[in-house]
Nucleic acid binder design. Structure first.
Lengths: 224, 224
DNA sequence: CTTCGAATAATTGTCGACAATATAGGCTTA
DNA sequence: TAAGCCTATATTGTCGACAATTATTCGAAG
């Protein structure tokens, strides 16, 4: 889930990435307090570095901070996930619209290539078509929007949080076959430079995903 | 432009607000370097506080940072403003949709009251209907969405940057009469709980605003 | 005259100590 | 016994100094 040029330079970078990983994957529990002294001993760095890392985590909305009190990992609530998907629907819809306008033919060809590989995998029953592939698909369209702001908000500001939800609520990589068809239609719209349709299909795609998650949440609530 | 409960607690808060104001209003030039030692003497605080403030400014996208090199105020480019408005169109469209769903009747009544006051001001020729009123209108709808994520991304992550563009490119408060009608129709749609229409009208409203800015940018380019 | 490289200066990154604030526990008092 | 205050403790906020990295300047060689 470390996207592209995300290589740590300073010790604060490194600590930030480690902390983010541990939070997203649940090693540090959702809702728990982040003690600066405790973390500084655990990660073998000074408190200043921990503080900087926590500041960055706050700007990704992974932790919340109160002055003179401290920072806590955000709590995972069903409503929070729904709200997140509402924003995602809006932003990725716009990303698809802009991708239909701004992606190069070569980028579109690559996207089609990705789709074909996924198709083969689904056909041969490997069904490796999981989160990694899905993220890759959405990632390329977001980048293809060529809108720096949109890219930053989605990839640095929301995707890690969404992934945190998915990992910790245990809902990785389902909806294989239907999602594949939806992806195919989105790419088709982008190929045709049909901005309107690309946005509409992407929004529906994410709405379906949201609905799927909602039902899963309900059954989980019933079980537990 | 300090919205609601934004009162500084720590010295870092205070310095962050001051720095943000100075950047947004152009007292610190766009594109200029932010020297930590220089700022620490200027604002009479230690470098640690300046560093924290700069970190926060980075998460608002007001400054950009490179490891071991330093931070610079973002450069204002016409393309940057266009990209910003694309994201804004998407997010505020969703905000209007959610506001139509989630605002209370009392909040809607308040919004209508605001609109009537603006109408009076426009009628009496005061034309005080400027940025403050416009921001207030959009602000209420964003809050009315009741989506915490959306609210944060828009009010903490984008509005100050948009304002920086508007202030420094000298395009405050025009489009009075037409914008008023657009606002009126948006509120009407929200009153009717017509989510679809509310989103559509808000998106158009922001698209018109964007187009207006684009022509202003062109004439500015011709003049200079 | 230009270009490359080394020494030097300036800036950012990191650290430990101290100050200010919030939390917890016990004590007094009604 | 319960409520409120006060002290003690722990945590966060702030600071100045040192280390590491980058930018600059000066000199030498082609």
């Amino acid at each position: 889930m470390t996207f592209f040029n995300e290589q740590p330079i300073t010790a604060a970078d490194k600590t930030f990435f480690e902390l983010r990983k541990d939070i997203v994957e649940g090693e540090i529990q959702a809702g728990s307090k982040l003690s600066e002294t405790e973390l500084s001993t655990k990660y073998q760095v000074s408190r200043a570095i921990i503080r900087e890392a926590i500041n960055r985590l706050e700007s990704c909305h992974l932790v919340e901070r109160k002055a003179n009190v401290g920072a806590r990992v955000v709590a995972l609530t069903p409503d929070g996930l729904i709200e997140l998907y509402q924003v995602r629907e809006s932003l990725e819809g716009m990303a698809a619209r802009l991708a239909a306008k701004n992606m190069t033919e070569s980028e579109i060809a690559d996207l089609n290539g990705l789709l074909n590989r996924h198709f083969d995998e689904v056909q041969t029953g490997e069904s490796y078509y999981q989160e990694a592939g899905d993220v890759d698909f959405h990632y390329r369209i977001i980048i293809g929007s060529k809108n720096k702001h949109l890219i930053t908000v989605l990839l640095e500001g929301m995707y890690h949080l969404i992934r945190m939800y998915r990992v910790q609520l245990g809902m990785a990589g389902p909806r294989v076959t239907t999602a594949f068809d939806e992806h195919k239609h989105i790419v088709k719209a982008i190929s045709n430079r049909d901005e309107e349709l690309a946005e509409m299909l992407m929004r529906r795609h994410i709405m379906y995903s949201k609905a799927n998650i909602e039902t899963k949440l309900e059954t989980k609530l019933v079980i537990n």
